[in-house]
Design a binder for these strands. Structure first.
Lengths: 165, 165
DNA sequence: CACATATACTTTGGTTGCTTATTTAATTAG
DNA sequence: CTAATTAAATAAGCAACCAAAGTATATGTG
């Protein structure tokens, strides 16, 4: 394996972990007075539900947010109690629950999205427009890659372990 | 404000949040049979302690990992119980605790680092060498920027809130 | 049709990782 | 020598997750 690639990989790894630890800024409860996980759910619904849609299934949300269905149910429970989302039974399959933003929920997440977008506009100015687009693309590529490699990575590590004398 | 920048910012924001939710792959307990937070501490020590160093202070670790000192204390407690790290009193200031990896801890984290590095070498191949370097640089720039903007962002959002009629 | 199996979600109980507030011990300033 | 400060540890508690078990609905097979 190329030494060059290994050196680059090391740099990439360090930047990656460094940005992981510092990077949870916009997920601070004290800012929104709302739990970060719940905001993530609201955000995801707001970017994935069209106005005429019947709403998202719990399983769709959990799949895309990479968490288990119980976790989503709990977020939805809390958000529903605050009247930020609505649950509707799916007429075609009554096991399915369709989740929609309420008007209150729409306004709420819109305000957060605007504040966040302002921050990202600042970041675009800081990085440059072309570099920002490139950065966005690389984040997508990298997280897709990591998702595909996950299983392989685990298997490799475990084999490694059983090798141990 | 430029519409162009806003569109780019939106793309950047979407990629950013998408990579946040998918991206915690290498932090999976089941892989290492060890808590992710503790691995992060081991990793940080391994990359920041030279062989002749007296070890890191709790406050140094907590500062760089962006957590409070009690959090670090708890991780160190668990790691010490597993004999992966050692606590040493600092002779110059006996309030200070110096944290060092044990031999077992060194071997342990080295094995994890190798597996992780392999994954990142794969990522470098996937993205390309030049792009990987650029990506690493942009991650650094972006997380630095977000850290500096954090306070401003919070203030802005709260002002916004009090404006609400 | 009936019943076994599968699916979609919810409930329950527990773990991890973090926080704030407080305490203990050691150092430094007046 | 005392008062204030600093470093770390302890205590109590919350948020976000998961696995396992439970409930209700749907589907496939004889």
């Amino acid at each position: 394996m190329s030494v060059e690639k290994k050196i680059i990989a090391k740099q990439l790894m360090e930047s990656y972990f460094q940005s992981q630890v510092g990077g949870n800024m916009m997920q601070n409860r004290s800012i929104y007075n709302q739990k970060p996980g719940e905001i993530m759910v609201l955000y995801f619904i707001s970017t994935n539900v069209k106005d005429d849609s019947p709403g998202l299934k719990v399983s769709e949300i959990s799949g895309k947010l990479n968490v288990t269905p119980p976790t989503v149910t709990q977020h939805i429970n809390s958000l529903e109690a605050q009247a930020l989302v609505e649950r509707h039974a799916d007429p075609a399959d009554r096991r399915v629950v369709r989740i929609l933003l309420s008007d209150k929920g729409k306004k709420y997440i819109q305000r957060i999205n605007e504040a966040r977008l302002n921050m990202f506009v600042g970041l675009v100015k800081h990085l440059g427009e072309e570099e920002s687009l490139l950065f966005a693309e690389m984040m997508r590529k990298a997280s897709d890659y990591m998702l595909t490699q996950q299983e392989f990575y685990i298997r490799n590590f475990i084999v490694d372990e059983t090798d141990e004398k």
